[in-house]
C-alpha cells in the first residue's frame, strides 16, 4: 500500500497533532488530578485529616463528570472551551474538554494508588510528628510513585482514546483522519494505517511507563 506525498504529510501532521493534544491534556489533567486525588485520600473518614463533607462532595462531583460520555461532555463544555481557548475547532479546542474529562479519572487513579500505601508507614510518620503536608509530600507521593506511573500509562492511553473523537468537532489528529478519510470517504487503507499508528503509540506509552515504574521501584530486590 502506498500513499502520495500529500497523504504522508497529512499522516505526519496527524501524529504531531495527536501527540500535542495528548501531551498537553495529560500534563494539565495531572496538574489538576493529583491534588484532587490527594484531597480525596486525605479527607477520607479514615484519612490523615478526615473531613467527610469535603470528601463526599468532591466524590460526587467526580462521579458526575465521569458518568457523562465524552462525546456529550465535549458539546456541553463548549462555552468553557470558547472562553478558555477562543475557538471551537482544531486541536486546541479539544484540550479543555479532554482535561475536564480526564482530571476526575486521574483523581480516582491517584486515589487508588495512594490507598495502596501501607497504613503502617503512615502511622510511623505520624508517630514521628509529621504534619499532614509532610505525610503527603514525603510519604504518600514517593511511596506511591511506582503505582502512580503504572496508573499514568492507563490514564494517558485513555486520553489518547478520547482524543480520537476530536474529529467530530473539527479537531485534528489521527482520530480525525481515521474518521474523515477512512470512515466518511471509505479510504479503508488510510483508516487501518492510522489505527496501526495509534496502536504503536499506545504500546510505547505503556512500555515506557511500566519500565520507568519497575526501574524506580525499590521494593524489587
Amino acid at each position: 500500500m502506498t500513499f502520495d506525498a500529500a497523504t504522508m504529510d497529512m499522516i505526519l501532521k496527524g501524529i504531531q497533532e495527536t501527540l500535542y493534544m495528548v501531551g498537553v491534556s495529560s500534563v494539565l489533567s495531572y496538574l489538576i488530578g493529583i491534588p484532587l486525588g490527594i484531597v480525596l485520600v486525605v479527607t477520607d473518614k479514615n484519612g490523615i485529616r478526615p473531613i467527610p463533607a469535603v470528601q463526599t462532595v468532591l466524590g460526587i462531583a467526580i462521579n458526575l463528570l465521569r458518568a457523562v460520555p465524552f462525546i456529550i461532555l465535549l458539546i456541553m463544555v463548549m462555552p468553557i472551551t470558547q472562553a478558555l481557548v477562543g475557538t471551537l475547532v482544531g486541536s486546541k479546542a479539544i484540550v479543555p474538554p479532554l482535561v475536564i474529562a480526564a482530571a476526575p479519572y486521574i483523581a480516582r487513579m491517584v486515589e487508588s494508588s495512594f490507598k495502596e500505601v501501607d497504613a503502617g508507614v503512615i502511622e510511623a510518620a505520624k508517630s514521628m510528628g509529621a504534619g499532614t503536608f509532610q505525610i503527603v509530600w514525603k510519604v504518600l507521593l514517593p511511596e506511591a510513585k511506582p503505582s502512580l506511573l503504572v496508573g499514568a500509562a492507563i490514564s494517558i492511553t485513555t486520553i489518547l482514546g478520547y482524543s480520537a473523537m476530536a474529529g467530530f468537532v473539527g479537531g485534528g489528529g489521527l482520530g480525525a483522519i481515521a474518521i474523515n478519510h477512512g470512515y466518511y470517504r471509505y479510504e479503508l487503507g488510510l483508516m487501518l494505517v492510522t489505527a496501526a499508528i495509534l496502536v504503536i503509540i499506545v504500546q510505547i506509552i505503556q512500555e515506557v511507563m511500566m519500565r520507568l515504574s519497575r526501574a524506580t521501584d525499590r521494593r524489587i530486590r
Binding site: D118, G120, V121, E123, A124, M128, P146, D217, R219
Partner: peptide
Amino acid sequence: MIFQQFNLLSQ
C-alpha cells in the same frame, strides 16, 4: 516508636 511490621519507607 517501633512496630511489629517495621514500617520502613520502602522507597
